[in-house]
Design a protein around this nucleic acid. Sequence first.
RNA 1: UGGGGCAUGGUGCAACGGCAGCACACCGGACUUUGAAUCCGUGGAUCUAGGUUCGAAUCCUGGUGCCCCAGCCA
Length: 563
Amino acid sequence: MNEQEANRSNFIREIIDEHNRSGRFGGRVHTRFPPEPNGYLHIGHAKSICLNFGIAQDYGGLTNLRFDDTNPVKEDTEYVESIKDTIRWLGFDWGEREYYASDYFEVLYQNAVRLIEKGKAYVCDLTPDEVREYRGTLTEPGRESPYRNRSVEENLDLFRRMRAGEFPDGSRTLRAKIDMASPNLNLRDPIMYRILHAEHHRTGNKWCIYPMYDYAHCVSDSVEGITHSICTLEFEDHRPLYDWFLDELELYHPQQIEFARLNLTYTVMSKRKLLQLVQQNYVSGWDDPRMPTLAGMRRRGYTPEAIRKFADVVGVAKNNSVVDMELLEHVLRDDLNLRAKRRMAVLKPLKVVLDNYPADQVEEFEVPDFPQDPQSTTSRKIPFGRELYIEREDFMEVPPPKYFRLALGSEVRLMNAYYITCTKVVKDADGQVIEVHCTYDPETRGGMSADGRKVKGTIHWVSAQRAIEAEVRLYENLFTKKDPYEVEEGQDFLDNLNPRSLEVLTSCKLEPALAQAVIGESYQFMRNGYFCLDSVDTREGQLVFNRTISLVDSWAKMQGTSA
RNA sequence: UGGGGCAUGGUGCAACGGCAGCACACCGGACUUUGAAUCCGUGGAUCUAGGUUCGAAUCCUGGUGCCCCAGCCA
């Protein structure tokens, strides 16, 4: 990523530039990434992570990691660990600044007491249903709670007893006293604390009252000295409340800035929907390679570099938008093209016999790992023999026009080996071609003919005798529709699941060098795509590869349009 | 029908009163021991109606469309 791209202008940077000009934060830039530990991070979070860490980096500032753990019934340390692991993998470092909203429970409590003392908060005994009823609607103002004008002393006493555990869940809340007639529903005496006799993953049973997001978030930002509190668009309506708490409390006041969350075609991004896919076994788990979770993408073979580049190239704005999956795929290929060693692998094998090649002869070709890069010096040996496998798709008995691959009577180049000409096909009882016989030209060793004759097609191959076997998993989009939520009456997004999103190929034939494949490394199976070892299901002697992404296939495209 | 936001090629993002640009996608061509990559090239956009201005994507007014808000979730 070059300098220009890294500093692509956006409206948030402009706001920061303005703050720096006016001196509002004394030139400081301090952001935070505030995940709730109730699920796995997905590509949408990656946009936020890259934004927050990226901006701070560029402005010489810092970014805190803060777990927004104010709801004990949904949160778990399992998620904390996976979130930390994923952010680290993405390439960002929060140093010692790993914080938890739960670290501030006491501070939050004391400030709530201050608000009560100012007459700006009160304990309310309304039931959940009543609270909803009193809130009014979008078009009608709400009504004031009958408990709104309790004395400061009574509020203080009640709030202390809420903390002490004297009341059951849901029986009382602490509410900010703002304006029940506000057109912004968030300002209609929002709840600050609710009673929850639940064990918290960090504070255990110390607390039985827990602060709500709106109250906890702004104060947490404030105590950490955050300058720019970047969040998504749906919190725009909450900003007046963010400001209200901090103003009333007279605390240091960060600036909240909202941007549009990322949406991608052919997938869903909501945690709830992803959870549903996992729980109802439409996928194998949060890290299923078809999932838009970062754990899934990592397992699929996405690199952190590609994801960071993607986050950069999609830009930041306030416009609700849906980014084409093709853009993600493009930056992925772009990255993998540079880092993936080239290998040969035959996914759907067809046996080839070279009739004029000595039966007992074996050769080895030394082939570079990066044939396209003249600087690169690494290579591997590839065995060759009389019997080979080629891709089933690379042979047609009666080829269509412009078909450059092997056909009866035609000549192609076996990559890095020899020219071969097909002389005969063998079929089974159903008429399926099960074997192809060819002759090779010994004068074309290495794949070049001395007489200068050209062959249009070059295909990959693997020695039948020396091939290693593997399982290969091919993935397609999880959904068949660009917008999975576009459904017929009575259907839901599950009806748009792609039945072919996973294809498992067993008995794939790979060149021997792939036995040394390493988890976490990418390989280009030439003419097939980019692959990586599956980090979960691979066993000693039992290789499982995931196809990260196919190569661009202009032949398939031609076929598609001419059909 | 209250409030808050957003409208620029098919998609995403720029242009901050002065020639509407970039990327992806699409289409054509060159090259090719990956039908990949690379290289070259074509086409295509300012939601709408007024107004201000020498000049408007940009400023003003009125429409229209879309998104968000009525959790003791975040």
